[in-house]
């Protein structure tokens, strides 16, 4: 049984079908990269997994339990699945440390004192020990994105979703964020990424899925997708993306 299973996931916004019957298995500790043009449905799929968007049809299983049952309390699910966004979305009125401690304090009900050592340890591990007291607007984009990752990790999630987390960064800051992902992979985190970083996907992913018009057109090991794509759509996309 895979850690995360998607079966026939369908998501519509009005007339537009954004996810059109998506099947996907993500094994424990696996890193799956979703690639494809903007608008292919990558981000929406991630938002559906985190129950930020209700799905029309299909099912999503976490550890074999259907988490997409209508009416299910989304809070418990979300606290097990962390998500990081393209635009960081840090809370601007809180320091980096407060950003990371808010959810554990509110959702798990632990005190500031009880959670602080653990969170500080996270900041230290990702090279942010001297940035904990800063407000988001005092941090570089790369630092903000790493704080956002720490904030999600502070909830001790079992799965992490990353929605084009390097797309808003200056090229020279992309590396520091991708390094964090490699660290998490080493620690055995289960991860799903929507990404435009083809080089990274090829180097680090266990599985790559190419999406187009809300469907997974082709999936497989990175080498297979990048070196010997079978579908014409995949070939056309890669020709443009790797130019």
């Amino acid at each position: 049984m895979a850690k995360l299973e998607l079966r026939g996931v369908e998501k519509r916004f009005g007339e537009a079908t954004v996810c059109d019957g998506i099947d996907l298995d993500v094994g424990e500790g696996e890193m799956v990269c979703l690639i494809g043009a903007s608008g292919a449905g990558k981000s929406t799929l991630l938002r559906c997994i985190n129950l930020l968007e209700p799905i029309e049809d299909g099912a999503i299983y976490l550890d074999g339990t259907d988490i997409s049952v209508p009416g299910l309390d989304p809070q418990t699910v979300r606290s097990r699945i962390g998500m990081v966004f393209q635009s960081y979305n840090l809370f601007p009125h809180m320091t980096a440390l407060e950003n990371a401690m808010l959810a554990p304090r509110r959702v798990r009900g632990v005190t500031r004192a009880a959670i602080q050592p653990e969170v500080e340890e996270l900041f230290a591990r990702f090279g942010l020990a001297d940035r904990m007291g800063n407000y988001p607007d005092q941090l570089s984009g790369g630092q903000q994105q790493r704080v956002a990752i720490v904030r999600a990790l502070a909830m001790r999630p079992e799965v992490m979703l990353f929605d084009e987390i390097t797309s808003a960064l200056d090229p020279q800051l992309v590396g520091e964020v991708l390094d964090v992902l490699l660290m998490l992979k080493d620690q055995g985190m289960t991860m799903v990424l929507a990404t435009h970083e083809m080089g990274f996907a090829r180097q680090a992913a266990d599985k790559v899925c190419f999406l187009k018009d809300g469907r997974i057109i082709e999936e497989g090991a990175p080498d297979a997708i990048f070196d010997t794509p079978k579908m014409d759509e995949t070939k056309a996309f890669l020709a443009r993306a790797l130019k």
Binding site: R47, N50, L52, P74, Q75, T76, R78, S79, I81, G82, M83, F85, S87, N89, L90, F91, L102, A103, R106, V107, A148, R151, A152, M155
Partner: peptide
């Protein structure tokens, strides 16, 4: 609204999102 998404994704309730974020 991305602030709301971020707060909800951390597992906060609607009320907590309103009050804290």
């Amino acid at each position: 609204h991305s602030q709301r998404s971020a707060a909800l994704s951390l597992g906060l309730s609607e009320r907590q999102v309103m009050r804290d974020v």
